[in-house]
Amino acid sequence: MNKNEFASLFKNNYALLYKLAFSMLHDTDDSHDAVHEVFASAWEHRKDILPETAKAYLAQSVHNYCVKQIARKTYNEKLRKLYPIEVSLTLNKHEDDRLREIKRYIDNDLPPNTRQVLQMCFDEEKSYKETAEQLQCSVAYVNKHIVKALRMLRNKFTANNKER
């Protein structure tokens, strides 16, 4: 693979790989770094890269890189970033679809109050206390809705997983 081919490989896949990294790391700078690091190592052995498998190879590499980054974090850092405590090196082929389904379920099937609390805590990364203050309710109320939302999601999506 010469420099021009490598450049188009980079440009065609950057956005996709960034999205993958961001879904795992939820941090703009860290995600750009992840993609750059992966391309840097790909550049080193660009001679061995086959165009037909390049995309899958890059995606798996970004996944692995992110898993390593997460594994390095301490327990508290994981909780703060809402990273999974255990991460698997296997990249699920249907990961994109699964995440889209989860999001669709949150938008369409959760009761509006529960959805709002979930969004404030997990998307906007507010603490339970901040969320409670903003909604003028108690922290226990926030906690109740979070647990309720997560149980609904768990029942829906881990059951689905077992069927597959």
Binding site: A7, K11, Y14, H32, D96, K103, I106, V147, L150, T158
Partner: peptide
Amino acid sequence: ELYQMAAETKKAFAHEQETEIDVEHEWNKF
């Protein structure tokens, strides 16, 4: 299990987020 689901929920939110990426700029940097 709930925490694992919370992590996945976070992922699903992050996955939805649209970011404008200047690919040319990233390439030049690279």
